[in-house]
Amino acid sequence: MEKIGLFLGCNIPLKAPDIEQSIRKVFPALGVEIVDLVGASCCPAWGTAPSFDIDTWLALSIRNIVLAEEQGVDLMTGCNSCFGVLSEAKHLVDHHPEKRKVVEQKLALIEKQYKGTAQVYHVMHVLYKEIGLDRIAEKVKYTLKQLRVAVQTGCHLLWPSEVMQVKEQNPFYPTMLKELCEALGADAPHYSKLESCCGMGAMRSTDQEKSLSLAKEKLLCMKEEIDPDMIVTTCSSCYLQFDGAQKIFRDRGEIDFSIPVFYYTQLLALCMGFDPSEVAALSQTPREEIISRIQSKARMVKED
């Protein structure tokens, strides 16, 4: 795979653009060129068209996939929600001829055509399957040896496994992200709630307290069971939840610790030596200290 279409979604470009920047930095450095899907829209989020009308959802999702098709590339997204919405839409359309027909009619209104040639991948899938752990390990300039991470894969990368192009061996005991972190030298032990939901997304906007209770349960589980130096996730929503919720809990005096949170490509970019002011610059839970520890002389395993 030489090129891949980057589907941005909403959260990454508008709330955490340092994640976007980290993706734009690491992929070319690992040999995969990023192609912009110019004119892409919202996936559309679960709370919008999918909650009103199936056909409208499918048309909007397939339009985004067509943007990749038109450029002859597969689509990759860094947001788990986008990944879930787009892969489920594609699965539905590809497996139900009558749905495909409706979508084709709708796309005709905007002079687009769906061929079904582009696959939907998540950033994690491309890193794990296409680029591979070895190539990633080779590019590490600062190792994470003796640092412990709590991995957070995120629900939409696990279930329903039926619609995924790249599958975990056991979605209830996921290991891809763990292995990706280990490729950077980190220790990524199991903890009991590893596959549980962070509470972000629709629950956060419906009932903030209940949503936060899930985040807190999981956070305390990580802290008590493995006491990690940082949380590493492949989901932008989980990222926003753990980063933001910790601030709320600290402000309320509910927790007295602080665990820095990274999106995986941010951490990868730091290990590859990219500038933190571009790839890991915006967070509510402080990360400066751990970043300077990561990019320190002592951890350097390779000169430029």
């Binding site: 941005l8 909403c10 959260n11 470009p13 508008l14 709330k15 653009p17 340092d18 976007e20 920047q21 734009r24 912009d36 899907l37 110019v38 004119g39 892409a40 829209s41 919202c42 559309p44 989020a45 709370g47 919008t48 002011s277 571009e278 790839v279 610059a281 915006l282």
Partner: peptide
Amino acid sequence: KGHAVFSEAAQLRQKVGLPPLPPTT
């Protein structure tokens, strides 16, 4: 906007070295 989740992000984006608007809708 074409984005269900929308907030003004030009400043944030420029801060990390990205163009003010993403290449989306």
